[in-house]
Amino acid sequence: MTATLEAAAPSPAGEIPSFTVTLRIRRFNPEVSEEATWEDFTVEAHGTDRILDALHKIKWDEDGSLTFRRSCAHGVCGSDAMRINGRNRLACKTLLKDVNPDKPITVEPIKGLPVVKDLVVDMEPFFASYREIMPFLITSGNEPSKERYQSPEDRAKFDDTTKCILCAACTSSCPVFWTDGQYFGPAAIVNAHRFIFDSRDEGGSQRLEILNDKEGVWRCRTTFNCTEACPRGIEVTKAIQEVKRAMITRAF
């Protein structure tokens, strides 16, 4: 008793028939060669298939050595950010039909982080920046015996930046980050914003001081790549602007 949306039956998604699609994938395996190469794979796809489905088809039916991260497969765990036709996206949230399957679709690892194998990058530098901005609630005095109160209006001020799943799509789309790996990058700033604008938090000035560093928010060139890349629809550039403004207006 399983509902099916196989291509043989018209799907409620608008009856998109099966089609063939070519993925042009950037391959790299340091056990084989120091050079990265492009490799084309052609697979049969169904109407609602995502890039991740096509990658799985390749890995499971053609070449088991194709390597990528994935877990939840519906856009909440942040494992499978990659560069698809030159734009950072989550493979599990990008439908093949939406990226022009008539031409080969290029799939590369996200930029600015060391490539480990095929589409897998070393995420450690990314998480190191995240940890530096003190991504946790800072308070003083005794804990209240019940919850801390917060008005719905105050809660709304940082709602957008609580959505971050740390996929690195934003940071690895940033031209400043590409040329300067020391730059904190948009994701770290987004997570600083999440606490700086939380009415319960008392660590705002410390975080602003950290981000006032030469590798901090002032390096942002407002290119909006990050906002376009965010699979969660966070207005990343706006959040960075709000942090900049807080730096100017708040005394610390």
Binding site: R69, S71, C72, V76, C77, S79, M123, F127, I165, L166
Partner: peptide, 10 residues
Amino acid sequence: LYPTRSHTGA
């Protein structure tokens, strides 16, 4: 997994 990839997040 990286801790933030865990399925509690879903």
